[in-house]
Amino acid sequence: MDAIFIAILPGWHGRRLKRTFPRHVRLALKLSGAVADLVALVRHGRTFRLLQPSQREELLNRMAHHRWAWPRALVQWWKLVALVTWLPPEDSTDADRRLGA
């Protein structure tokens, strides 16, 4: 999932979803990561992690504007999890740091 979170929020470095989130939610999140891999394989012949940053961004943008609701919802969910788990680095701006505070 880290590759997806970094594509959404460059420089993302975050907490792990251990125990605090229910097991089925963590499982669903992992499985949803496989969707990104599947789409990447179909479009670029490589898994999401192996894509160039610009390709990752383009793929997520395509999902975020898809005519079906579920790819849009997936991107929204990843975005929310990325933001909630994000630990901004010490040298980040005040605005960044206050995202988590």
């Binding site: 929020l9 975005k79 701006t93």
Partner: peptide, 23 residues
Amino acid sequence: RAFQAARVPGVGALFEERLQQLD
């Protein structure tokens, strides 16, 4: 703020740029 930020459109560099305006 994390919930608020999730309502900001875009991903990647554009999203990061927009987050600077979150206030």
